[in-house]
Amino acid sequence: MTKLSDFAIAKHWPAQHPDRIQLYSWPTPNGVKVSIALEEMGLAYEAHGVNIGRNETWTDDFLELNPNGKIPAIIDPNGPGGQALPLFESGAILVYLAEKSGKLISKDPARRYETLQWMFFQTGHIGPMFGQVGFFHKFAGREYEDKRPLHRYRDESIRLLGVLEKRLQDRPWLMGDEYSIADVQIFPWVRNMRGFYDAGELLGLHNFPKTYEWVDRAAARPASIRGLEIPPRS
């Protein structure tokens, strides 16, 4: 597929601005990473709300774009070689956008790889563990008499918060003085534990002051304020 109109999803969610990056997302910790990054980078984009509560990610049109049936996903109509580029997985999208814009990732190879290691830290650890805590703490998990699953994910999440707390002891951002896609990748998930998941007491979040000072700094950035509400819940 070489242009936006070749994708079935472009018919399901028609583009008003087909020359812009098309974002298909929902305001979850994974979804807002991309809208925040796009706002930070100043890239022109158009957001489409894909309502996960209505299972809209499982439509044939969306599955053509992301066979894993998860938000977010994008189509850049002006991708490499002038061809339309579809991408899913928030981490991959953030790296692509950072390299396209030249923002939020260092051009120094060593610093670039250091940034990527924190991206993978979220992908492999923060996201899966925090998501399980949210399930067992706030949703159906409360119906399980056996609390070992909750306690397992709680304990691992506390450990992971300790990793962040140590990293942020003497620096404002994960990469030091430079705000990066690593911060964008991780802070929405950590913010969610205090907010939507209401897991402050469960995880002892008061024990991680540097981490939540970092979350508050990141969330207060103008691009974050905008991006956290994109696309709006309908």
Rank of each mutant, 00 (worst) to 15 (best):
R154C: 04
L38P: 03
S224V: 06
T59Q: 07
G31H: 03
Q169S: 14
G69W: 03
L63Q: 14
E229H: 14
N30E: 03
H17Q: 15
L63N: 06
T211A: 14
E99S: 07
H48R: 07
F136W: 10
E143D: 12
H137P: 01
G204F: 05
R152A: 13
A110P: 00
Q132L: 14
S157L: 07
D60A: 15
G79Y: 01
S90V: 02
V133M: 08
P231K: 12
Q22Y: 00
T123Y: 00
W189A: 07
V50P: 05
T57C: 10
G102C: 06
L63E: 11
L164Y: 14
G102W: 02
P18T: 11
F121D: 06
D108P: 04
R191C: 13
E56T: 01
E56L: 10
A8N: 11
P14G: 12
M119N: 01
R148L: 11
K3C: 12
D19W: 00
P80A: 00
F120T: 13
L38T: 05
K138H: 04
F88S: 13
G200Y: 02
R154D: 03
R191F: 14
I126M: 12
L203V: 09
L104G: 08
L65S: 11
A223I: 05
A110E: 15
V163Q: 09
I71F: 09
G53V: 04
F130L: 15
Q185T: 15
A110D: 14
F196N: 13
L104Q: 05
D76N: 00
F130G: 12
V95H: 03
Q122I: 01
F121E: 05
Y197H: 11
Y153S: 07
N51S: 13
I36A: 13
D177L: 01
R159W: 04
N55E: 14
K3M: 12
L116F: 07
E143Y: 05
P188K: 10
G227T: 00
V34N: 12
N55G: 07
L4F: 03
E46T: 04
D60I: 05
P72Q: 12
I36T: 09
L104K: 02
E56P: 00
L104E: 07
F208Q: 09
N78Y: 01
N192E: 11
W173Y: 15
V32T: 14
K33I: 02
W189P: 08
D216R: 01
N78D: 14
P209D: 09
F7K: 04
E56M: 10
T123R: 00
Q16S: 15
H137Y: 06
V32Q: 10
I74K: 02
E64W: 02
M175Q: 07
V190E: 13
H206I: 13
G195D: 15
P67W: 06
L87T: 01
W13K: 11
